[in-house]
């Protein structure tokens, strides 16, 4: 698949931002991340600690890989893989009816919801874009400016939708506990 290089750069930029934040959240309180990860009840307890570490290393490798042009496509495949695994892990727990476990998305704690699965699906689309081969053309200053602004804009949108999802979870909780439809 041939795509304009700017599209690929924007997709990479957003994925880098998403994974850098994920790494930051995991490392800023690694023991808590391990506990939250264990709550997903996907893996036996004995595997939780080593796999948690592997996930962080893998995310760091993906960020590095996306930054370096030569390894971009390999890293994009890795990102697709991880995003798919996370999406499946969340879906499995939603199907089990376990909405109340913390998603481990960082911040002040957020339950699981299908919103997270949709978000991962959209990020997977970005991963596919990042996987494409660029058409040959020179990158101008205008490209660089649009790249920066686009990544910031998408980032703001991600934060805003996550906030909206968190608010909606509050609303649903209050509604359920008061028994109004």
């Amino acid at each position: 698949m041939l795509l304009d290089p700017l599209v690929i750069l924007i997709a990479c930029g957003v994925l880098i931002a998403v994974f850098v934040r994920a790494i930051w959240h995991k490392l800023s309180d690694f023991p808590v991340f391990k506990a939250l990860f264990a709550d997903y009840e996907i893996l036996p307890q004995s595997l939780v600690a080593p796999v948690a570490l592997i996930l962080v290393v893998a995310e760091a490798a993906i960020v590095m890989g996306l930054v370096i042009p030569a390894t971009r496509q390999v890293a994009a495949i890795g990102a697709l893989f991880l995003l798919a695994i996370y999406g499946i892990a969340i879906s499995v727990n939603l199907l089990r009816g376990r909405y109340a476990i913390d998603c481990g998305c960082g911040g002040s704690g957020q339950g699981l919801s299908w919103f997270l699965v949709v978000r991962n699906a959209i990020l997977i689309v970005l991963g596919v874009l990042a996987l494409a081969s660029p058409m040959m053309r020179a990158i101008s200053l205008a490209d660089a400016i649009v790249l920066g602004l686009s990544v910031i804009t998408v980032w703001l949108l991600i934060l805003a939708t996550e906030q909206a999802a968190a608010n909606d979870a509050h609303r649903q909780y209050i509604r359920n506990s008061r028994g109004k439809g």
Binding site: L36, D39, A100, I101, D102, S108, G109, Q110, G111, N167, A169, H170, R171, Y173, I174
Partner: peptide, 14 residues
């Protein structure tokens, strides 16, 4: 929402 009902901790009732 956080002011209205003491939520946060109960949202994630692990």
């Amino acid at each position: 929402f956080e002011r209205v009902a003491p939520m946060g901790a109960l949202m994630t009732d692990a």
